[in-house]
């Protein structure tokens, strides 16, 4: 990127002037920013968990070890869990605020659609994280998810791609792990950058 290009990019992120009204707390309640904060916490703690989590048959055992033996392991895991729960809630409230202030109307239409996709991906990430724990309740949740997939045409193939096996009972979390940690999280990170860029183009809030 040329020097001019860098400067113009930075001025998109941090413009000189913005509308005074956009700074009011009531305009946004900081809900989008709060979701992004949760996403940053999730990324950092998620990377830390990657060092010890063993996808596959050892999922539950490695999580138990992380929880009980490793220094600060339980803290890192709890932070990841609660940031995930908070992100689902704050993304949902963010959506409610957008509907309430009618910010989905033209000019911001594309960003509304991006946001709806992001909400869906956030929920799927939360669900897949629940499956990654590899406990009994994860197996039950996987069964429900697979049954939902199978009700779609061609759903058996989809279920195999997402869950990786015909039966969730043998407890492997490998496929779900790839989706959770790389594909879905990467897609959310990329779409968020696009989302923020569109906010700037629409004359929205100045980020910190």
């Amino acid at each position: 990127m040329s020097k001019q290009g860098t400067k113009s990019f930075m001025e998109h992120i941090r413009p000189r002037q913005i509308k005074a009204g956009a700074l009011r707390l009531r305009a946004t309640f900081c809900l989008g920013g709060f979701s992004f904060l949760a996403f940053i916490v999730l990324t950092i703690t998620g990377v830390l968990l990657l060092f010890y989590y063993q996808p596959g048959d050892r999922a539950f055992a490695s999580m138990s070890e992380l929880n009980s033996v490793l220094p600060y392991g339980g803290f890192v895991r709890s932070l990841h869990f609660w940031a995930g729960q908070m992100m689902v809630i704050s993304v949902f409230l963010h959506m409610v605020r957008v509907v309430w202030s009618r910010a989905y109307r033209p000019l911001r239409e594309l960003n509304w659609i991006t946001g709806v996709v992001l909400f869906g991906l956030t929920v799927i990430l939360d669900y897949s994280g629940y499956l990654l724990r590899g406990g009994q309740e994860s197996g039950a949740a996987a069964t429900v998810g697979q049954a939902l997939f199978r009700s779609l045409p061609g759903g058996q193939a989809l279920a195999t791609v997402f869950f990786g096996q015909p039966s969730p009972l043998n407890g492997s979390t490998l496929n779900m792990f790839v989706w959770h940690a790389f594909i879905l999280a990467g897609a959310v990170g990329f779409l968020q950058m696009f989302h923020f860029w569109r906010i700037r183009r629409g004359g929205g809030v100045r980020p910190l």
Binding site: L48, F51, V69, L70, P71, Y72, G73, F75, V76
Partner: peptide, 9 residues
């Protein structure tokens, strides 16, 4: 400090 302890466990 805590992160380095966690990673060096």
């Amino acid at each position: 400090y805590p992160v380095s302890h966690y990673l060096r466990a």
